[in-house]
Computed example of a mutant assay.
Amino acid sequence: MTTVRIFAATSYGSHTPMTGGRLRREHLLAGLAGRGHSVDRLTLDARPGPASGTRSLVAAVDLRIAGRIRRADVVLLADVFTAPLVPAVRHAGVPVLLDLCDSPYRLLAEAPRDTPARWAVQVFASAQLLAVMHGLVPMVGRLTYISELDAQVDRRTVRRLPPHSLVHNGIAAELFEVPLDVDDRGYIGWAADWDYPPNQDALRWFAREVATVLPESVLDRVRLFGPRDPLPSLGRARGRLRYAGFVPSLSTLYRGAALLIAPTLWGAGMKNKVLEPLAAGRPVLTTPAGVEGVPVHIASVVDVAEADPRTFARAMEAAVQAAPSPGQAARRRESVRPLTWPSAVEAMESALRAVAEERLDRQV
């Protein structure tokens, strides 16, 4: 692809270092710049959600930003909360790609509505999606998703959904260098962004229902990792759970683990917490929700247990008692070998090329 001028809008704000969206945007934009493209980045200094959506509306009427858009060959809107910029981009006549990554409708459908407050939040989110997904999204030239499942969920709901491409998340190269010998005396690790609602729900469920039926010998090996200590929010339900802090090096985190768990109850996209340990050759135990959208050849090397407290507890006990297998560790690593950040950047570059070429075809 010849060098292109990319105007990229991202919503950030108070993201933690383990936020999947932050990792995706930083690696993709840095990778595009590293391949020789010019990236003019607009960062909306607000957490993804209503705040960043409002910032996008303000940016859409800013004449200085309009000038930056007109100088670009293609516009990359890095998440759904930057969609209010679409009319301004269309007015400038510049092709635009929107990276939805996860399906907004998949996330909405799986979100719990078990309290009046949550029900109200989901009703408000539904109203927002109606305007964005049915009004703004059909105006873009192309979408990108992390999985085909996410794309198909939206395609069943939005009649005029634009063409889409798949751009996977990458896995840090260092994880493929972690020695494959698993220490069966290591800890049981759970690494997550504890500010993300699906992770908060999973932790509450685990603390209140799974931990109470786990043998103490297994529970005492569980370590929680992340930028923030989630245990105070659990109150007395924290029990014997331990927070081990934030480990900047994922290779260090996974090297010491005998098992990684991801007791996911709901969500969208593909879970980094499931894929990354596989690159290190470590066994991963999750729920059926944890492997939704994951290619079959990868899901086949993941241990999956139903989201039933006793079933998940028995699976944890069995997993830590199983003898480590170098052959299984190697198969886990090979299953995710193609999921590198350079290959993700190439996929995004191809999607940008497609949206630019589709515009040229319409002009002919």
Rank of each mutant, 00 (worst) to 15 (best):
T252S: 15
T115F: 07
A280C: 08
Y105S: 14
Y12D: 12
S249Q: 13
H91K: 13
E276A: 00
M348A: 11
P84I: 08
P232E: 11
A330I: 05
L28Q: 10
L224H: 03
V96C: 14
A268M: 07
L219E: 15
E317Q: 15
G20E: 03
A92Q: 09
V153K: 00
A88M: 15
R331W: 01
L149I: 10
R106F: 10
T212R: 14
A131M: 13
V182M: 00
A46F: 07
G20M: 06
L339K: 01
E174N: 03
R223P: 00
L278N: 00
R337A: 14
E306H: 10
G13C: 12
Y243D: 08
P198N: 09
A299K: 06
E26W: 03
T157C: 07
L259V: 08
H37S: 08
S126D: 14
D154I: 08
A127Q: 14
H168Q: 12
S350C: 05
V123W: 14
R332W: 01
D184V: 04
L136T: 07
G267T: 08
E334D: 15
V355K: 02
L166P: 06
G53L: 12
A279C: 08
H134P: 03
G49I: 13
R70M: 11
P263L: 10
A280G: 06
L108V: 06
D308Q: 12
S38T: 15
V302D: 00
D229S: 11
M316T: 03
T264G: 01
S249N: 12
A46G: 14
V301G: 02
E209P: 02
V304W: 05
F246W: 15
R159I: 12
P277Y: 01
A319Q: 03
H91S: 13
R242N: 03
R208D: 10
V284E: 00
L275P: 00
L265H: 09
H27C: 04
D183R: 09
L285W: 01
S350V: 13
I171R: 00
L76C: 12
R223I: 02
A8V: 07
D220T: 13
W341S: 05
V213I: 11
P263A: 11
H168E: 11
E26H: 09
L352M: 12
N169R: 02
L161I: 14
A268E: 04
I6M: 09
A237N: 11
